[in-house]
């Protein structure tokens, strides 16, 4: 796993354990909904946390291909490497 993906994995682990009070392990092969038992609110909290930490934007379309923790880590790492052009107001501090 690439260095950036490991960094994202660490952040996913932090969000699901600290903010979503998940008590178990967090592994790349785990299904976000079935294994980590994330509901719509949990998925939103996770997405917002990753967007804030890595300064990226994740969309509904992005979510189509994401099923596992590893899928999400890979997506975020790719998005960090090739960010979507920011809207004008997002360039503000």
């Amino acid at each position: 796993m690439a260095e950036r993906e490991l960094e994202v994995m660490t952040e996913i682990h932090r969000i699901v354990t600290e903010e979503l009070e998940w008590k178990g392990a967090v592994e790349p092969s785990q299904d976000l909904i079935r294994d980590l038992q994330l509901d719509s609110l949990g998925l939103t909290v996770l997405a917002v946390g990753l967007e804030n930490r890595f300064r990226i934007r994740l969309s509904e379309e992005d979510a189509q291909g994401v099923r596992t923790v590893g899928d999400l880590a890979k997506l975020v790492a790719q998005r960090v490497a090739a960010p979507v052009e920011p809207q004008p107001e997002e360039a503000l501090p």
Binding site: T44, A47, V48, E51, N52, R57
Partner: peptide, 14 residues
Amino acid sequence: WATRHFNLERLEDL
């Protein structure tokens, strides 16, 4: 929201 969050459109959508 902008003091903590990056993707404000997501929060507007919520």
